[in-house]
Design a protein around this nucleic acid. Structure first.
Length: 479
RNA sequence: CCGGGUGUGGCGCAGAUUGGUAGCGCGCUUGAAUGGGGUUCAAGAGGCCGCAGGUUCAACUCCUGUCACUCGGACCA
């Protein structure tokens, strides 16, 4: 058994040996994505695309249940439009790609490939919002955007990436604020219920917030290596963009007013979070709710009469219950086991001559490799329960890890000691001053991940300057 | 953007120091057996060495440039 294990893991670099390489190995070997001929851009392969489609459908139905509508805007933004809001353009200018020619002809005004679509939405909203009766506008767009990143990594940071961006307009600041929080909660619920990833909800500091936003909210997840991954964000804009773009409506009191705006997004980066939260040295582990394949059937001894027939009949029968595939390739059973573990299929069903004789099958969980024998009479009832068990197992494991890798620091020396030696989150009090935030980055190499909604007092004073503390901040290294 | 590394059949590597136009493992194809943790045997196919220049009678090998990937840093939703 030990030998077998050894053989299986040699395909992937062990996590403890080189986490970055482990991550890349999984992306490539699980066939989620591969590199393309285009700098910094990846090809998301069918398996990765199927995962994204499930993520997308799940999120999309959550958005629609709350009244959001999908829309599709241009992928180009004229330079003048991008420049309309000062903070925004300053934030994005260094990383936009420019289109300067149409065919052979030089453009009178260059176009940027959208890095995000606030400006396009605002331009459109200025045309269609005239009355308080036009509000709220709850729009969402599924698209790809381009940011000219210096360093790229599959899913985590790529030049082009896919996402959704919700952009809403509201009559009052309160309503917009509510929307901002509502959508952050949608993301958090999605992560926990569908991806089995526990997240920390909170607000970004001034330094870390989105270019042009008044407030940025975030959900932060902890990866296997203790680093934080921002998994979704929701921004409150106030009426800053509305003023910059001249979006006005006639209010209930017949006065001209500016609407209040939000935007929120989740990207294919979340696939990186799935990999680095649930994956292990045998490969990927897919959360059942979004797994492209929830159950793979591996028939044993397919040359024996009746085996393949029984297995494929079972496969057809189970289609109504789970997303199921049968692997009837010529590879050996052991090869298939390893292959589907690599791809993270939550459940594996083995069926061979002995099972058929006994009207049973063998089911193995991906998350803990637990092997059970299930009667074919009750397989349909058992499968959803097993998928749920895998989900819960993944969530609890991730939560336990996050808890065990979350520390508190009351002094600067304590904090530096932790930052240097203990990967993970550090809870420490902060005075609210940006110079302290900068100092922590310089001295300890960590940044503020968020100001969690759930506040408690770790100590009285700022961990950095010692002045009276304003709030608790979760610090850490980030992707 | 700065510094380090890598680029040779589909994948992983050797060959470069001592230039003489490629070799191994896996995979792939075909056939047979096997089949409950990457099964075995046999026979095959497949590369002009990232790209562009240069030196040389001769370049995978030396020189220059360039591109891509990668690690670290800086930057960054």
């Amino acid at each position: 058994m030990a030998d077998n294990n050894k053989k299986m893991v040699e395909a992937i670099t062990p996590m403890d040996e080189d986490f970055a390489k482990w991550y890349t190995d999984i992306v490539l070997k699980a066939e989620l994505a591969c590199y393309s001929g285009v700098r910094g851009c990846m090809i998301i392969r069918p398996y990765g695309t199927a995962l994204w489609e499930n993520i997308r459908n799940d999120l999309d139905s959550r958005f629609k249940a709350l009244g959001h509508e999908n829309i599709m805007l241009p992928m180009f933004i004229p330079e003048s439009l991008l420049q309309r809001e000062k903070d925004h353009v300053e934030g994005f200018a260094p990383e936009v790609a420019w289109v300067t020619h149409g065919g052979e002809e030089k453009l009178a005004e260059r176009l940027c490939v959208r890095p995000t679509s606030e400006t396009l939405f605002c331009d459109h909203y200025a045309e269609i919002i005239h009355s308080y009766r036009d509000l709220p506008k709850l729009y969402n767009q599924w698209c790809s955007v381009v940011r000219w990143e210096k360093t790229t990594r599959p899913f985590l940071r790529t030049t082009e990436f896919f996402w959704q961006e919700g952009h809403t307009m509201h009559e009052t600041a309160d309503e917009a604020m509510e929307e901002t929080e509502r959508m952050l909660n949608v993301y958090a619920d999605f992560c926990e219920q569908s991806l089995a990833i526990p997240v920390l909800k909170g607000r970004k500091t001034e330094k870390e917030k989105f270019a042009g936003a008044l407030a940025t909210y975030t959900i932060e997840a902890m990866m296997h290596d203790g680093k934080a991954l921002q998994s979704g964000t929701s921004h409150y804009f106030g009426d800053g963009f509305a003023r910059a773009f001249g979006i006005q409506f006639t209010g209930r009191d017949n006065t001209l007013q500016y609407p209040f705006q939000t935007s929120w997004g989740m990207s294919t980066r979340i696939i990186g979070a799935i990999i680095m939260t649930h994956g292990d040295d045998n490969g990927l582990v897919m959360p059942p709710a979004v797994a492209p394949v929830q159950l793979v059937i591996v028939p044993i001894a397919t040359h024996k009469p009746g085996v393949l027939e029984a297995a494929s009949a079972l496969c057809d029968d189970l289609k109504s219950v789970v997303r199921v595939r049968i692997d009837d390739s010529d590879n050996s059973p052991g090869w298939k086991f390893a292959e589907h573990e690599m791809k993270g299929v939550p459940l594996r069903l083995e069926i061979g001559p002995r099972d058929i004789q006994n009207n049973q099958c063998v089911i193995v969980r991906r998350d803990n490799r637990e092997k059970i024998i299930v009667s074919l009479n009750e397989i349909k009832e058992k499968l959803p329960l097993l998928l749920k068990a895998v989900h819960d197992g993944l969530y609890q494991k991730a939560l336990a890890r996050r808890n065990s890798m979350t520390y508190t620091a009351e002094s600067m020396s304590e904090l530096i000691e932790l930052a240097d030696n203990k990967p993970g989150f550090i809870k420490a009090m902060w005075c609210g001053d940006e110079t302290c935030e900068t100092e922590l980055k310089e001295k300890a190499g960590i940044t503020s991940r968020c100001i969690p909604f759930e506040q408690h007092e770790v100590s009285k004073n700022c961990v950095c300057c010692g002045k009276p503390a304003k709030e608790l901040v979760v610090w850490g290294k980030a992707y």
